[in-house]
């Protein structure tokens, strides 16, 4: 098992803020919009240096999506930012008509996704956003795994023509990917090569998968771990190549088991190569208040759960 170490823990939303700061210097067409959550989205450095390219929308997310779509007419690259719940479910029809169907170059950047939002509870903990966004034709859906990868993804999507949903979160987690990485949209990242089981993880679950890999290794199981940071378009080739080798699959995501990464992988398997698959995901329920750690444990989204799922998958081979 390849060793992954870290010297610090950071939140992925800060990676987004750092990426925006960088984009502010690099790309004069980048415009940031926010619906009264500037601090939560870590936009201060961008706003300080580019006050004319920041648009405060107030608590009006529907309007923010429409304004973003309009800004693209004139060549701007709008980054519309708020919590994931308000960036997707609340404004689904606005995204559908004015952004996706109209094929506008809008970047919807969503923080506080999933259970790890914590104490605010289920009203804010969206677990359906990946599903909603990936169902929209033409939408690119990205869920990076740590601070550095989120920063790199933020910078990369500015150069990608077309609508993008970028999902990140609030908790501080280990920073284990390279600071100078090049982010390739749609290209899965091989975390660890293995032969016994393929673990496809996304977002915060990638670090859990790495820890699970170490535990499995201690028990003599050689896990292949792949970071699927781009849910759509899915790197089907990487998935199938891995499955050829391992013959069974675990998918891990901080999302409802319905409609997320697991279902995307299952679709590839059903079509190409039937192998056992185990889901590590929220079991079709809403979340609740609690600390992020408590919630991830209660809803079965830890390294321990990935280990158990891997054993079940291997058993079913």
């Amino acid at each position: 098992m390849k060793k992954y170490t870290f010297t610090e823990k950071k939140d992925t939303r800060s990676g987004f803020g750092a990426g925006m700061h960088e984009l502010g210097k690099q790309n004069p067409n980048v415009v940031a919009l926010c619906a009264d959550l500037v601090g939560s989205l870590k936009l201060e450095p961008f706003i300080k240096e580019n006050p004319d390219r920041f648009i405060q929308c107030g608590i009006s997310e529907a309007n923010m999506i429409g304004v973003s779509a309009g800004l693209t007419i004139g060549g701007k690259i709008p980054f519309a930012t708020t919590f994931a719940n308000f960036a997707t479910g609340r404004v689904y029809d606005q995204i559908r008509q004015s952004v996706a169907y109209s094929n506008k170059n809008v970047k919807i950047c969503a923080s506080h996704a999933g259970l790890t939002l914590g104490e605010d509870g289920a009203t804010h903990q969206i677990l359906e956003d990946l599903g909603m966004m990936k169902m929209l034709p033409g939408m690119t859906v990205i869920n990076p795994c740590d601070y550095n990868q989120t920063k790199a993804a933020t910078i990369a999507i500015a150069d990608h023509e077309g609508p993008v949903y970028l999902r990140f979160g609030r908790p501080v987690i280990p920073v284990f990917t390279a600071a100078d990485q090049k982010f390739e949209i749609g290209k899965a990242w091989m975390v660890n090569e293995g032969t016994d089981v393929s673990i496809f993880a996304t977002g915060h679950m990638v670090w859990e998968a790495i820890q699970a890999g170490e535990q499995l290794e201690a028990e003599g199981i050689n896990a292949e771990i792949i970071n699927i940071h781009t849910i759509k378009p899915l790197d089907e080739e990487a998935v199938l190549k891995s499955v050829e080798k391992t013959g069974c699959v675990v998918t891990a995501e901080e999302h409802n088991r319905i409609g997320g990464l697991g279902d995307s992988i299952a679709q590839v398997l059903v079509k190409n190569k039937l192998v056992p698959q185990e889901y590590v995901a929220v079991n079709d329920s809403f979340g609740e208040s609690g600390t992020p750690t408590q919630l991830m444990e209660k809803y079965g989204l830890t390294a321990k759960d990935i280990v158990a799922a891997a054993k079940r998958a291997i058993e079913r081979k």
Binding site: I55, G66, V67, G70, L71, G74, K76, Y101
Partner: peptide, 22 residues
């Protein structure tokens, strides 16, 4: 822009107006 689902056009127009200003 696509329109038909009502209520969205003014927001889009405002974005286009702001792009013109920028």
């Amino acid at each position: 822009i696509a329109s038909g689902s009502l209520g969205q056009g003014l927001s889009v127009a405002l974005g286009a107006a702001m792009a013109k200003k920028l």
